[in-house]
Design a protein around this nucleic acid. Structure first.
Length: 587
RNA sequence: GGGCCCGUAGUUAAAUGGAUAUAACAGGAGCCUUCUAAGCUCUAGUUCGAGGUUCGAUUCCUCGCGGGCCCA
């Protein structure tokens, strides 16, 4: 959209003899024009003063545009030099018909891209560990991952949603140790199994809390000394060996956890195409690493198997421990083989916290050597932490932290409180959608790498830079459209309409949406879309204040404004959808 | 000890090396018999420090200072 307008300007520049690649920027103020061409680089190449060059270019372009047959279109009506910039003013009426026709003919597809066409990408996100708490980090990861999936799908990629979960390893051992430990000493796993079977009728949340407490007991014991570490490690062996003593308890606890995670996925409107488990890949991972030792990729060191990342400027990492068990690194080798054999992806994106950056550098380097086909295709998308305002980073080591589900519940409670006076049909559903908007927008509005400091008061506030603020604008537009009673807004753009500055700014803003979706996919960062929607919302509000719609002075103006807000609605809904946020009819 | 990331108004965040560093919240002053004022308009307030590269640095480089993380 705006891209085509820019191309027209660039063509004009080429017509007057400029060569090479140009970027157009946006003047800082509306009265300085709609698009700008900075002359610095061109002037440098010519060895001239940029201000003089701008003056000269503006003159030449004006000469060009007065020759009617040379004009690309009537969209540009004025060219002016501002210091070292050549600024272009677009004709409001031409712009209006260009933008509105463009969006309307694209419909819901407006903002979609083709850059990923024919390419397949696996996006791995979520990844909570069974038998551990679903903590705030997982919540943020799910929200981020869901949005990244949508941004890539919107860009034309075929996306496979992957969730990889750690159902073997020390954290499972800790939970099992905790389960068999009571205040009066150890109990048998038969007894544990009986307790758990008796709990089957209870709520899932309660059963999962029971597992969480067990994990916390086990983790505490593990940290209490070397001897304790050894005791817990015994359970690790049993898990890997599928020891019948613990197998039934382990399977039941694992299933409770997974069922519980499913309820959270549903609550957040996310889903997965495929689940992978560490239990499915650890054997193959171990095998591949052992083979790699023979090929000189990995190296034995003090009974463990390591990869010498230090040869590549990273650090060495253990892939098989001295006890003979694969580490996360070793398992990831087995996992990657399955990814590539089953899906043949062009790219695998791991949406994981930023603290894993060093880990992935080494694992990807090792992978390249085990499977050269993965080279350049594995990508770690590092995310910042989620902190509640006034608290330190959350850890699931200790039992008493706010879980992801607790936060969802607290947000819902606060939203319900704010909306208690509102008389609405389907109020519960609206509250749920608004609550999701609160959480998702708060997590996605800053750069993906930035830590999010979640301020409950600010995020649930219905004014300012918040999810509800955006939903409110959509609801207001829908309300006006409903009241307008005009069935068809397919008015021809009326060329004698006097278009106000606020209307023009809004039209220009609408034309930039595809640029936002492109930036988001190119930088792997949904926040680009979030920022765009917020900017659009701001511009809309100025328009809304300055331009009465239903009380417009002429019928033409009313039809025109209805058409504009219909398009704002389309773009807002589309952008929010990329963030995983559903709009509401009223609130 | 080695490596990575970060440091912007009181707070939370923007800014492909470009025009007067932009918003939100909090503060001050206005605007509702009018489409949902959950809004709008005005106002005050910012680049951690020292160098360097550049016509131009919040952005790139070096060295400090402060915070986070990974590895040992």
């Amino acid at each position: 959209m705006i891209k085509n307008i820019k191309e027209q300007i660039i063509n004009s520049l080429k017509n007057i003899g400029l060569e090479g690649e140009f970027e157009l920027s946006q003047p800082p103020k509306a009265d300085m024009g709609d698009l700008a061409f900075p002359c610095f680089q061109f002037a440098k190449r010519e060895g001239k003063n940029p201000t003089e060059v701008a003056k000269d270019l503006a003159q030449k372009l004006n000469d060009l545009f007065t020759k009617e047959d040379m004009r690309q279109s009537s969209l540009i009506f004025e060219v002016k030099a501002f210091g070292p910039y050549v600024n272009f003013f677009l004709d409001s009426n031409e712009l209006a018909s260009y933008v509105l026709d463009g969006i309307e003919s694209a419909g819901e597809k407006y903002g979609e891209l083709k850059i990923g066409k024919g390419k397949k990408v696996l996006i791995e996100f979520g990844c909570p560990n069974p038998l551990k708490v679903f903590h705030l980090g997982h919540l943020k990861n799910l929200i981020t991952g869901e949005s990244v999936v949508r941004v890539f799908a919107n860009a034309g990629y075929e996306v496979i949603r992957i969730n990889y979960q750690g159902d073997v390893g020390m954290h499972i051992a800790k939970a099992l140790f905790g389960l068999q430990t009571t205040d009066n000493g150890p109990q048998s796993f038969d007894a544990v199994l009986q307790i758990m079977k008796d709990m089957e009728s209870k709520f899932l949340a309660e059963r999962v809390a029971f597992l969480g407490e067990a994990y916390a007991r086990g983790a505490k014991h593990f940290d209490s000394g070397d001897e304790a570490k050894g005791e817990v490690a015994e359970f690790n062996k049993k898990v890997y060996a599928k020891d019948p003593e613990i197998e039934e308890v382990y399977q039941l606890a694992r299933q409770w956890s997974l069922d519980y995670f499913d309820t959270i996925y549903k609550k957040l409107g996310t889903h997965f195409d495929q689940f992978y488990f560490e239990s499915q890949v650890f054997e193959r991972g171990t095998e591949l690493v052992r083979e790699g030792v023979k090929n000189g990729i990995f190296k034995e060191s003090d009974g463990a198997v390591i990869f010498e990342g230090s040869k590549y400027g990273f650090h060495d990492r253990v892939f098989i421990s001295s006890q003979g068990y694969p580490t996360y690194e070793g398992k990831d080798i087995g996992l990657a083989e399955r990814h590539f054999q089953e899906h043949h992806p062009d790219m695998v994106i791991h949406v994981v916290g930023k603290e894993q950056t060093g880990y992935f550098q080494v694992v990807f380097k090792a992978l390249e050597q085990v499977f050269p086909a993965t080279m350049g295709k594995e990508y770690h998308l590092p995310g910042g932490y989620l902190q509640l305002k006034g608290e330190k980073k959350m850890s699931s080591r200790t039992g008493n932290v706010i879980s992801g589900e607790d936060l969802i519940a607290q947000v819902e409670k606060s939203v319900r409180e704010i909306m208690k006076e509102n008389d609405l049909d389907n109020k519960d559903e609206i509250i749920k959608k608004v609550s999701q908007a609160v959480l998702k927008y708060a997590m996605l509005k800053s750069d993906i790498l930035q830590d999010v400091s979640f301020d409950m008061q600010e995020s649930i506030s219905f004014s300012g830079d918040s999810g509800p603020y955006l939903l409110y604008i959509v609801a207001r537009i829908k309300s006006i459209l409903k009241k307008s009673k005009i069935k068809s807004q397919k008015s021809k753009v009326i060329f004698d309409i006097d278009i106000k500055t606020e209307e023009k700014r809004l039209l220009l803003m609408l034309s930039r949406y595809p640029e936002a979706t492109r930036e988001a996919v190119e930088s792997y960062d949904p926040s680009k879309v979030a920022k765009y929607i917020f900017d659009l919302a701001q511009v809309f509000n100025s328009f809304y204040q300055a331009c009465p719609i239903l009380q417009a002075t002429t019928e033409e103006a009313q039809l025109f404004r209805l058409r504009i807000i219909k398009n704002v609605e389309t773009v807002m809904e589309s952008g929010l959808n990329l963030l995983g946020i559903e709009v509401v009819e009223e609130m």
